[in-house]
Simulated assay, not measured.
Amino acid sequence: MSDAAGAAKSGAREVLYEVADHIATITLNAPERMNTISGPMLNDLARHLTEANEDPMVRCVILTGNGRAFCAGLDLRRERDGNGLSAASSPTTLNLRNTPPTVLQAMDKPTICAVNGGAAGYGMDTALGCDIRIMAESAKLAAAFVKRGVVPESGGTWLLPRMIGWAKASELIFTGRTLSARECLTWGLANEVVPDAELMGRARTIAREIAANAPLAVQASKRMMRMGLNETFPDHVHHVYLQLLPLFKTQDMAEGMKAFMEKREPKFEGR
């Protein structure tokens, strides 16, 4: 039985996980509260992201949500009751090593966020933490942090200036504005906008295209891009060369060269 079928039967799982065709699909599954993040949901999401990153059969990850929202932020009702995210930390400490934003940023596997609906606050930062965003026409990104008296707590202040520049990031964060899917495309926050009914199909098409490539090379490329954010060009070129040397010895590189010479599609095995 798939995770989705099991969740439908038990009604218990708030994060669904399944793997097919080298693609891991992680689905936030609390539609009755617009997939707002509770403490257990946060832990399950981080655990499944880590599982996907460590599974050699997984070559790409799709993150999405069930219902009309991708994630409407933190579950404020549980926070008010003392059972939310803050219950796991003291007023001066917060363990960030295994939280979804930190795990997402450290992942070598490519990640696609299929934004099926509203992504606000924590949900927006989580979507931005993925490598690629495909948005449904009805989806929105809501940077409502300052309207709630908080800062973008899950990576937005680090991600947005790098993604869209200081001026546009300032405008979005300081105003707490909500952007439609089409506005996200214009601002450079979405790769594509598609009709709602086509969202998962399009996300899977891109994931399959990624998964068809040499996984070790794809993961090394992502690793180098991440390192390059904080390196000088000479240091980065040196690290790229060091990353390239072990790839020369892989079966996948030999297969890629052979397939090119034989004018056929390569069959990569991740070794």
Rank of each mutant, 00 (worst) to 15 (best):
L199C: 03
F174D: 13
M200A: 10
L179I: 00
C184G: 15
A203H: 04
A203Q: 02
V193K: 01
T157F: 02
I173L: 12
V194G: 06
R204F: 07
P161D: 12
A139C: 07
G176F: 11
S154G: 00
K168T: 11
G156A: 13
L185V: 04
E183P: 04
P215S: 10
L199P: 06
K140M: 05
F145M: 12
T126C: 06
A190R: 06
C184S: 08
G149V: 02
P161K: 12
K168R: 15
S138F: 00
R177I: 14
S154I: 02
G149W: 11
F174I: 05
P152C: 09
V146Q: 04
E192P: 01
T175K: 12
D131M: 09
C130H: 03
A167G: 04
A207Q: 03
M135C: 13
G156S: 10
I173Q: 04
A214L: 04
D131N: 14
L185R: 08
E209T: 08
K168Q: 15
I173M: 13
A167M: 05
P195K: 12
R204P: 02
R204D: 06
R162P: 01
W166T: 15
S154R: 15
V150K: 04
K168S: 15
A169R: 01
M200K: 03
P161Q: 05
F174Y: 13
A144M: 13
K168G: 07
G201P: 05
S138D: 04
L128A: 08
A214K: 03
A211K: 07
A211H: 05
E153S: 14
N191Q: 08
P215L: 08
A127F: 06
G129W: 08
D131A: 10
M200D: 10
T178V: 12
T186V: 00
A211C: 06
R162V: 00
T175G: 12
I164D: 01
A211L: 01
A207T: 09
E209M: 07
E153M: 08
A181H: 05
M163E: 10
A211S: 11
A136M: 05
G129I: 00
W158L: 11
A211D: 09
A136E: 01
R148V: 04
P161A: 03
P161W: 06
E198C: 11
S170Y: 12
C130N: 10
E183M: 08
A167E: 15
D131H: 14
D196E: 06
R148I: 00
V146H: 08
R133N: 12
E183K: 13
L199V: 03
R208Q: 09
E171M: 05
A136I: 07
A127I: 15
R162C: 00
N213E: 14
P152M: 08
C184P: 01
G155V: 09
S180G: 06
